[in-house]
Design a binder for these strands. Structure first.
Lengths: 235, 235
DNA sequence: AAGTGGTCTAGACCACTGA
DNA sequence: CAGTGGTCTAGACCACTTG
């Protein structure tokens, strides 16, 4: 029954956040300097710093050397989006995962793909079109381009049983990536493949990945109708 | 010309990341314990910890007490999404921002809205429908519900010149929020308002915000055609 | 130039959790 | 219950940036 509010950075973070929520410090206000605030809250400056960084990460406050810490006036809504490997996503929803290779070709990618991957000189890539299934029904239509220059081994991999994603994930660590989310009206062919009506709106997620500036892959995932992404403020 | 690679947590983070990218440690492999790795890299354990936490945050490694640190086998694509206040977004694109109030009513929200806000007993809310304009053209159609219980003062605010968002942002700090992104085929009315064709696919972003479990607002932002969201791996 | 946040270190102790 | 990551502290120094 003892409320031993131990000093911990999470506790400190919540207390500072509380001072903002209850109006002690309002939008645009300047908070005390770290050293003073730490003393006031009874913790080390390092601990306060840890707490403040968490608040700064979520976009609640803004910190500047010499400028001090202020409550953001124009807070951005900053959310973390987790996009798991499709197989795991399907399985997490309690369905049986399936994979079906539609087509596999090699070609130089069209300009938009090359541009998205920031390729200066477009080179031959492997194009893989496939379906991810959930309990036998289409879950996602995937249209992928893989760089044969960065990942030559992919040419020898059997992609009829194993998704290119699964192979890449295990064999080519990614150093950074971009994501683009948009809405799309599906054409006749897409509609048929993902079990939608022609013209129906679907969510399209494109991902571009690189290893140290060398392009790995561009994936365009056309989700089935009704699919949505969820995100939330970081805890 | 001196490559004084000073030990800093970013440097350490990049070096450990490098050990993963170059295949020294592969997916599923276990990394040395912090103390050993710190000594190997010539930094304090605290500094290594800072670096490892950054890698864990981006989903590259997984850390467990007693279990050690392993390279994630099923890496999630974890991205940070920043959604600014609409006015700033429009201005950042070099357009002149405009705001137009369409309708303002009070009512008990329909079930889906109440459910999204986790309201146990739906109560009266203020409903505000408005357009955000960029150089006079519709940029976003906003359909917002504001809790009159949590934010009673909003009833007295003039929302014909000031967006509800702007007022809320300055007067009701948010403790946490959820975001939902989906694709939507617009109906006749929406199409007309946002300058689209009937049935055209548009990106819909819904946001629910709370202060300490008390619902503040539900916003449904229907973006104009062609709009897309971008995100990328955290630096 | 001076003030404020950012980081590093070393050491101690805590809290999970897997063998 | 022992091993590993997580955190706290105190003090020093660094680096940015604003007055």
């Amino acid at each position: 029954m003892s409320f031993v509010a131990r000093t911990s950075w999470q506790n400190v973070r919540d207390r500072v956040h509380g001072l903002i929520l209850d109006g002690t410090y309002r939008h645009g206000d300047k908070l005390p300097r770290d050293e003073d605030l730490a003393e006031e809250l009874g913790c080390a400056r390092t601990t306060l710093h840890r707490a403040m960084r968490a608040l700064a990460d979520t976009g609640i406050i803004e910190r500047r050397r010499k400028g001090g810490t202020t409550v953001r006036t124009d807070p951005v809504t900053r959310a973390t989006l987790d996009i798991p490997v499709t197989r795991l996503e399907v399985e997490a929803r309690g369905f049986t995962y399936g994979y079906h290779l539609l087509e596999r070709t090699e070609a130089v990618p069209p300009a938009p793909i090359a541009a998205a991957l920031k390729m200066l000189k477009p080179h031959r890539m492997l194009r893989v079109q496939a379906l991810h299934l959930a309990d036998g029904r289409t879950y996602v239509l995937e249209d992928r381009w893989v760089s044969l220059q960065t990942v030559p081994e992919i040419a020898q991999v059997d992609l009829s049983t194993q998704s290119a994603n699964e192979w890449l994930v295990r064999n080519r660590p990614v150093s950074h990536y971009d994501i683009r989310i948009s809405a799309h009206s599906c054409d006749v062919k897409e509609a048929q493949l993902i079990g939608a009506q022609e013209g129906q709106a679907v969510l399209v997620v494109e991902r571009m990945t690189w290893t140290n500036d060398a392009p790995i892959t561009h994936v365009r995932a056309t989700n089935s109708p009704g699919f949505h992404l969820m995100a939330s403020s970081r805890s």
